[in-house]
């Protein structure tokens, strides 16, 4: 007969306690707010799922969610192929490898709010280097403080500048782990460079690429600091992404109930998309 030893639970307990303190307990307070109404003085009134309904029906939330998906889609469409191309063109050995790696890592080492300030100053129409160059040298009408399109382009270019390196470094790690023997086999078969990419490099990069896309999705979907520093969500509401809107509701208007409900919806969407994506990408290997 198999005896079931319950002692193993003791080994899990410390982690459980840690997770409870840094994730579960704070989250439960959010859950608590999301189903109640408060006017301060520690007085609470039961609200049920009302806040959730209100948030999901509100045009404001839907617009912010739309902008959020648009932003994430745009940066993924640009950063993933660009990251792969840059990783493919980096040297595999020799003097330039460490140089390239350090250059690639640099943008990621800069604090997020510094990145926002940098790009803000860089792109201001009259005093920024880029802003001045575009307006006064090239004659392009560009002003990210006034035009939604300019603001969007700036936010996306900034994110591409800041985070493509992550995709590059992960893909590069995947690429250098491919043994020479695979390239030799392709050479002997007479495979074209495209076939080498399609049948050797891409499949071998699949795992790291999955992680890269997942990380970029979660980070960009939850992005706050950089666009907040750069545009503050403007002009108007044109670059108000979900987290910026959330902070406005929670801290600007002090609507704790709706903000809590929105947080949970936000969290659920991030979790759901990540889970679906990860499951789809790893389904093949599990078969």
């Amino acid at each position: 007969m198999r005896t079931i030893n319950q002692k193993a639970w003791f080994f899990v307990l410390p982690v459980l306690a840690l997770v409870a303190f840094n994730a579960l307990v704070p989250m439960m307070t959010v859950v608590n707010y999301s189903v109640q109404e408060t006017f301060g003085n520690n007085q609470f009134f039961w609200e049920g799922l009302g806040w959730f309904e209100q948030i999901l029906r509100s045009d404001r939330f839907q617009a912010a969610l739309g902008r959020q998906f648009l932003f994430t889609a745009m940066i993924l469409i640009i950063e993933v192929p660009l990251g792969i191309i840059v990783a493919l063109s980096m040297p595999r050995k020799g003097f330039w490898v460490p140089v390239c790696l350090v250059l690639m890592a640099l943008p990621m080492l800069i604090p997020w709010n510094v990145v926002g300030s940098m790009w803000n100053i860089f792109t201001l129409p009259k005093i920024g280097l880029l802003g001045y160059f575009l307006n006064d040298v090239l004659g392009i009408n560009y002003d990210m403080t006034q035009q939604p399109l300019s603001a969007w382009i700036t936010v996306i270019v900034m994110d591409v500048w800041h985070w493509t390196s992550l995709v590059v470094l992960l893909c590069y790690a995947g690429l250098v782990s491919i043994p020479d023997a695979y390239y030799q086999a392709a050479k002997i078969d007479g495979a074209s460079p495209w076939s080498v990419f399609r049948y050797i490099q891409l499949p071998k990069m699949k795992t790291v690429l999955t992680i890269a896309i997942l990380l970029r999705f979660m980070d960009s979907f939850n992005i706050y600091t950089e666009p907040f520093v750069l545009t503050g969500g403007g002009p108007g509401n044109s670059t108000t992404l979900l987290s910026i809107d959330l902070v406005k509701i929670a801290l600007g208007q002090f609507d704790l109930g709706p903000a809590a409900a929105m947080s949970l919806i936000y969290f659920a969407i991030t979790l759901l998309v990540s889970w679906v994506f990860y499951t789809l990408m790893t389904k093949d290997d599990a078969e």
Binding site: Y199, I200, P203
Partner: peptide, 10 residues
Amino acid sequence: HQFFVNYPHM
């Protein structure tokens, strides 16, 4: 080769 070299996703 000594290593088993095959196209992984074929």
